[in-house]
């Protein structure tokens, strides 16, 4: 069975839009939570500006629990929670919820890693000038880590495109869903090819944008 391309192209466009929506909103929400968690993780580390073993351990363990779970299992496992929060487990909005959770914790680790690579001497200098911990977070940690952080977020957004395709296969919509229903279940390799090409283009675009942005903020 062959696809009717005249009616098919609008579906491709719609699916691409859905994928972009999922990735975009997840990236925004995941970045907000991820940066907050990552910053907390960093500043509560031993000997850091707001050292707090309790908070650090809780966050650290939480991240280590969530991150290793394969996304497709996590997606299904938390579907009751998704239903409770979003009201449904099907569709683009429903996919954004689990994606945001996973993205938040991945971004938290990326943020933490970037912050760890900041020269502690720079933080010490700010302390010596009388900066409060909150000032250090906003005027030293974030600006100093911004360049590599954007690269890290780019890396995450590429894997979010991957996650969105996974979410698509279990009713999340987007290109994953399209590839599943037309390409896989109807054995139409040309549809498969189109989705793969679009996915590759999306990834390339994301990477290019990330590189350009990070270059703007990197001063090293």
């Amino acid at each position: 069975m062959k696809v009717d391309w005249t009616t098919f192209w609008p579906r491709v466009a719609e699916s691409t839009g859905e994928t972009i929506t999922m990735v975009f909103f997840t990236l925004i929400c995941g970045s907000i939570f991820g940066i907050i968690i990552g910053l907390l993780l960093f500043v509560t580390r031993e000997k850091n500006i707001l050292e707090n073993k309790f908070v650090f351990q809780i966050l650290n363990i939480l991240i280590n629990i969530i991150r290793p779970i394969p996304f497709i299992i996590f997606l299904v496992a938390i579907s009751p929670l998704t239903r409770a929060v979003v009201g449904t487990t099907i569709g683009t909005t429903a996919a954004i919820f689990p994606m945001t959770i996973v993205a938040s914790f991945s971004i938290a680790r990326v943020v933490e890693n970037n912050l760890v690579s900041i020269d502690p001497g720079v933080i010490e200098a700010a302390q010596a000038m009388g900066a409060s911990p909150l000032k250090i977070i906003f005027t030293v940690l974030i600006p100093e880590a911004l360049g590599p952080l954007i690269l890290g977020l780019t890396f995450i957004s590429v894997s979010l495109i991957d996650f969105s395709a996974v979410a698509g296969t279990v009713g999340g919509g987007g290109l994953g869903h399209l590839a599943m229903t037309y390409g896989y279940q109807r054995f139409d390799s040309s549809v498969m090819l189109v989705t793969v090409i679009i996915l590759i283009v999306l990834v390339q675009l994301a990477q290019w944008l990330g590189n350009v942005l990070s270059k703007k903020f990197m001063r090293r």
């Binding site: 200098a125 000038m129 409060s132 903020f217």
Partner: peptide
């Protein structure tokens, strides 16, 4: 802590590795 920060702004410090803000 607040008084200390104020006091610190009255003590300049320079470092072996300069510790300038790269950004």
């Amino acid at each position: 802590p607040k008084e200390l920060r104020k006091r610190r702004s009255n003590i300049g410090m320079i470092f072996q590795n300069f510790n300038l803000f790269h950004s």
